[in-house]
């Protein structure tokens, strides 16, 4: 039942009167209609066909059957390439965290002037907008194949997101303690170190760990364009129709992703 609101004379700022019921219903129906049209448009544009999917089931079963039993002769390659994937994710996240910390402070409106914070936010948005695969292709063609272009692509791409998260965390820091430090005679660097980092440190660590999980998954894709890691070998074995080896790599990737996620969640839970 709609809430009863006492009649108010004149225009009273700050008090929103409820919409009449009929307008509310029409509004809701319009929204549902728009949603249905958008989904239908996406469906037709993607050639989604249930019949085709059902008909392809035997071929899928054939594909999967060729993956068993997994070929363990690639164990050494798996260990080396998995290690490389984790290295790219760790070092890329580290580089990104460093850049994000500086850019995050420049983008935070509570410690940077607007003429600086706004352009920094735009710059971070541009970084977020460039697909990581495009960055990887660019770096592969400029610095060569291997993990190095992977690190650069991961660092640059994740700075767009991490920098934004850091800036938001800094903006959410309580101003009162900063005023107190200011009153004690602290300078800007001391205010940042003691007032901001102490307050938002756990938030920054949580964001960084979350980004590390994403980076680990993105590093797998980077291998497809020659930017190092286990993804490179998955593509190599698929092209050579060596599905048993692909199976070994896939299992390892699954274990690695789940393990890292569990560790990351456990650490994030302890941060307060």
């Amino acid at each position: 039942m709609p809430k009863k609101i006492l009649p108010i004379e004149g225009n009273s700022p700050g008090i929103a009167l409820p919409r009449p019921r009929i307008v509310e219903s029409l509004w809701r129906a319009g929204l549902i209609l728009v949603l249905v049209v958008v989904i239908a448009w996406a469906w037709t544009g993607t050639d989604f066909d249930i019949k085709k999917l059902i008909n392809s089931l035997p071929r899928m079963a054939d594909f999967l059957s060729r993956m068993v039993p997994p070929d363990m002769t690639v164990a050494k390659t798996v260990v080396v390439s998995t290690g490389e994937t984790v290295q790219i994710a760790i070092f890329g996240t580290f580089m990104s965290a460093l850049a994000s910390f500086i850019l995050g402070m420049l983008a935070a409106e509570n410690i940077s002037p607007r003429w600086l914070s706004q352009p920094t936010k735009w710059f971070l948005a541009i970084l977020r907008g460039i697909p990581v695969i495009l960055l990887a292709l660019m770096f592969v063609s400029t610095v060569g194949l291997g993990p190095f272009p992977g690190v650069l692509a991961i660092a640059l791409h994740s700075t767009g997101m991490l920098g934004k998260f850091y800036a938001e965390a800094i903006e959410n820091a309580r101003q009162g303690p900063l005023e107190a430090l200011d009153s004690a005679g602290a300078n800007l660097s001391q205010r940042v170190r003691f007032g901001i980092l102490t307050q938002v440190g756990p938030d920054l660590a949580r964001d960084t760990l979350f980004r590390f999980e994403l980076n680990l998954r993105e590093t797998l894709v980077l291998g497809l364009v020659g930017a190092g890691g286990i993804g490179f070998y998955i593509l190599l074995y698929i092209r050579a129709f060596q599905y048993e080896k692909v199976a070994t790599l896939t299992v390892v990737v699954l274990i690695m992703v789940v393990l890292v996620e569990q560790i990351s969640v456990a650490i994030r839970r302890r941060l307060r």
Partner: peptide
């Protein structure tokens, strides 16, 4: 600034810091 201390209505302590740290940081200036 360091010669004038301010006590606030909402205390304005740093929640995650210990009592000693909060007090010690009063000497930052």
């Amino acid at each position: 600034n360091r010669r004038i201390g301010f006590i606030f209505q909402h205390f304005n302590l740093i929640d995650r810091a210990t009592v000693l740290e909060n007090v010690l940081w009063g000497r930052l200036g």
